[in-house]
Design a protein around this nucleic acid. Structure first.
Lengths: 245, 245
DNA sequence: CCTTTAAGAGTCACCTTGACTATAAAGGAG
DNA sequence: CTCCTTTATAGTCAAGGTGACTCTTAAAGG
């Protein structure tokens, strides 16, 4: 940034102002599907349309702080939950005509949540709910594109980071972790190979000591693991077949 | 983005306005070093300090359009050159106090240029010049951090994309391409192994037919190559030793 | 003419990976 | 209770990619 166009006695109101918003693509894996948190708009433009949650960045906030606040307001997640959430900046959308009313620049974030509570539709949103990613179309503004970019980014990050654990509860089985990859990538992975890769990568997961097994599903009970300290995968866990992007 | 806080007859001037700028971390490899394009500020704040080139996003522009315009104005690169430049959005910096005067949100971009012309210091910049990356400190605003983020991002992208060719002229030798990796990563790579990797990756580079060799340096003349059609590297070309990020 | 420098060809062992087989431990159906 | 299905977990094996090296070729410089 720079003020080279701004004379000493610059009047901030002399220019057409820009509004800055923070929007969130909140993703989760539920019921074997990738799901997105959406809100229904109550006002024009796009009244009645579904949109990504988000809202204006207020004067004392950073974009990320605004994103966390809006998420808490609109979904009923507790402040503590939102504060500990894995939130990552996706990119900024600044096309001049993306909002019909005025100039709005949107800083988009991606959030990954495990086993989410039902959203309450609070705040200013008419209602809020989880929707399966592949059934979502026709969102307000350019939110279809933001959502697609978020999906692509998350899919790519799974390859070379330990991000997948952010989709899982604190303790999880390797089957659950594998489901995350399969759901986001839309492919099936070989169980033994996936297991070998995860367990031989130092710091990806760590075994839980106490009760060595968990029951609940159909097959043989699985051991529980916690997220390890590592954040990146070397070498990466590449998608089979297709190219990323 | 959303207008949930905005009543029907919303007055854009009722809020403290945000200014939006586009700043660029323009990188090149010259004289065996990674270099950055900087401008000297002529006005307060930070008058006399060096900063990344950039400026305000004007009402009819997207942030990327503003970035290209500012780059052309301040460095003397032709409009055609700037239009064809590899420009990638880095991230957006929105901390409330990053500009002492008013609320300024900066969308940062990374640009990679091959064999750059001397900047002219045109536009509003007092002067402009290339500086070696590792000697740069004390830039205006939070530009030190933006620059560090750009370096990290570029280093990471070299691993899994064909981005390195963007640092090279249209026709280049494998030695030049290898220098890009070595300079950005700060490591030495094994010549034969690098060659094997690049040549066996489909679409990374394509051999130039005509005059099969180029002279100029000291050793055996090298064959020339052009960038191939591929954009991603599968499998990636990982940095030796250290972790990314 | 010899040294230096870098390109380019080739070798070899190791590690990772993909494909696959086998066994163990649960639930459900008959 | 037994068979069948499902899932976890333990292995095996071959192909491919990579790191570490060696060797040859072709220029420039002294």
């Amino acid at each position: 940034m720079s003020d080279r166009r701004v004379p000493e006695g610059y009047d901030p109101y002399a220019f057409e102002p820009f509004a800055v918003t923070a929007d969130l693509a909140v993703l989760t894996v539920r019921e074997e599907r990738l799901q997105v948190l959406l809100v229904e708009r109550g006002q024009e433009p796009y009244a009645g349309s579904w949109a990504l949650p988000g809202g204006f960045v207020l004067p004392p906030e950073s974009a990320e702080q605004a994103a966390r606040r809006e998420l808490a307001e609109e979904t009923g997640l507790s402040e503590a939950t939102v504060a500990g959430l894995h939130l990552e900046q996706l990119r900024t959308y600044s096309e001049p005509d993306r909002d019909p009313r005025m100039r709005v620049v949107s800083v988009a974030f991606t959030a990954l949540v495990p086993d989410p509570p039902e959203p309450r539709g609070g705040g200013d949103a008419a209602q809020a709910r989880w929707m399966p990613y592949d059934t979502v179309r026709g969102l307000a503004f350019d939110h279809d594109r933001i959502l697609a970019d978020a999906h692509e980014r998350v899919g790519a990050k799974l390859e070379y980071s330990c991000l997948a654990t952010a989709f899982c509860p604190p303790e999880f089985t390797l089957g659950e972790l594998r489901h995350v990859y399969e759901t986001v990538w839309g492919v099936e992975l070989d169980r033994p190979n996936f297991r070998r890769k995860v367990l031989t990568t130092p710091g990806f997961v760590q075994a839980v000591e106490g009760p060595p097994r968990l029951t609940g599903g159909r097959g043989k009970p699985a051991a529980l693991y916690r997220a390890g300290g590592a954040t990146t995968l070397h070498p990466p866990l590449l998608r089979p077949e297709g190219r990323p992007a």
